[in-house]
Design a protein around this nucleic acid. Structure first.
Lengths: 237, 237
DNA sequence: CCAAAAAGAGAGCACTGCTCTTGCATTGGT
DNA sequence: ACCAATGCAAGAGCAGTGCTCTCTTTTTGG
């Protein structure tokens, strides 16, 4: 009873899923800008106006795809993290960063949809916020574990930034030092700078071995948030 | 004679400029996606087909705007740098980064055009490359000056990245150490991560005092490329 | 069993990029 | 000074878009 009130309700779920699937297919192929409601409807053998019974507008369809993309990325990152749960924090940080990068390279259009430039006139509804936060929360949890275990290195903040740093810490992770939270937010943005530049072709003829480059850069970000390299490995930094 | 072969040639230059101006206006207002050739033509009092005499396609118009945007950004960055020519490298680095950020905030749509997600199906022609490189070259020149003066701090590279680092150095700045060039490329991408996150609303309800946050982050990037804080200022890092 | 709600179909509006043809104005060579 | 060649603007037209409205059919729940 609670799962489906009848054939009609079930059909609605199926059609909604079919629309999203076809839309995702077209998105992956031609990008968000060329995603066409009419084309989706055509491919599904329905008339375009019928599609509006399921998604009131093109933007609503895009919003649904955005949430799914955030979830897919979050799930991928969390799965990658679970596989190295025993490793040291620095290794786990790099693993998650690498998983995000790989997901981005495998789903360029979906990545563009969520971390690329927003479609003008379109503002993501509040609904997307929890899904969007997943990777960020995962990165925070890694640093938190390191902090509670052996502590993290801290970079002193300039006086002018201290109030803001305290504010951010209170909002995002009250149990972590403001220096750490500040570095975390910066590293979070910088991570997406690295991925975006690679994905959007800015590294064309600049970086060739992008895998190695990224691993190193992610390691530097780990260093920046205070995750020290484990004492058993290599020379001190 | 060389400036204009006649009234017709002059008129062509003027109309071309008028089209670009109006297009830039519409771009700033509604974003690249909604830039419409027909709307531009309408606003200029000409019929849409006439506009195709000046720009063979919408993409060509966008390309022209992209080159102009790169030039505008490059000029802004260079002007800001010229004003602090006497300062220490770290200060000059931060100044240029801040100038790029300010330009981005003042020209969000133009920034999106050049550093946002690319329009699918559109590949920037080779023509844009020199204009695109200006800010990068400026950042390199700052680090080069510091290197030739008092030297820069170097972060050791993992063995797997050394060949690629040497390659990048040979390509971008043969006179600089591979460690420095690698850090420079990463910092370059990360800078645009910071700006993009702020511009595209990812810092919404996360970072409030964005000016102070950015200044600090840019300082950390300077540190990362090896620009040390001058000995006269503050406690050691 | 039957009114109400949901869903599909089709026509239509206003818009887009782009092409093609037609007529007019300017140009440069003879 | 003329005249063919070129440049340019205008208009019609094509195929596509998001979206709305109306009409008909199907399913639902009281």
């Amino acid at each position: 009873m609670s799962t489906a009130r009848g054939a009609r309700a079930r059909a609605r779920i199926e059609v909604t899923a079919a629309i999203k699937d076809e839309a995702r297919r077209q998105l992956a192929e031609d990008g968000a800008a060329k995603l066409s409601l009419r084309a989706v409807a055509r491919e599904l053998g329905m008339v375009s106006s019928a599609l509006y019974r399921y998604f009131p507008s093109r933007d609503d369809l895009l919003t649904a795809l955005i949430i799914d993309a955030y979830d897919s990325l979050g799930e991928t990152a969390e799965a990658a993290h679970a596989e190295v749960a025993g490793a040291d924090p620095r290794e786990r940080w790099i693993t998650v960063c690498t998983a995000v990068r790989r997901w981005a390279l495998e789903h360029p259009q979906e990545y563009t949809l969520i971390y690329g430039s927003p479609v003008p006139g379109y503002t993501a509804p509040e609904t997307t916020i929890p899904a969007a936060a997943r990777v960020g929360l995962l990165l925070i949890s890694i640093v938190r574990a390191a902090y509670q275990d052996k502590g993290v290195a801290r970079t002193p903040l300039p006086a002018e930034l201290k109030p803001e740093a305290r504010r951010m810490a209170a909002e995002l992770a009250p149990d972590l030092p403001p220096e750490t939270v500040t570095a975390l937010v910066a590293a979070w943005a910088q991570l997406y700078g690295l991925i975006g530049f690679e994905l959007f072709g800015q590294f064309h003829r600049v970086v060739e071995d992008r895998e190695a480059f990224f691993r190193h850069a992610a390691g530097r970000l780990a260093h920046e948030v205070g995750l020290v390299v484990p004492p058993t490995a290599g020379p001190a930094e």
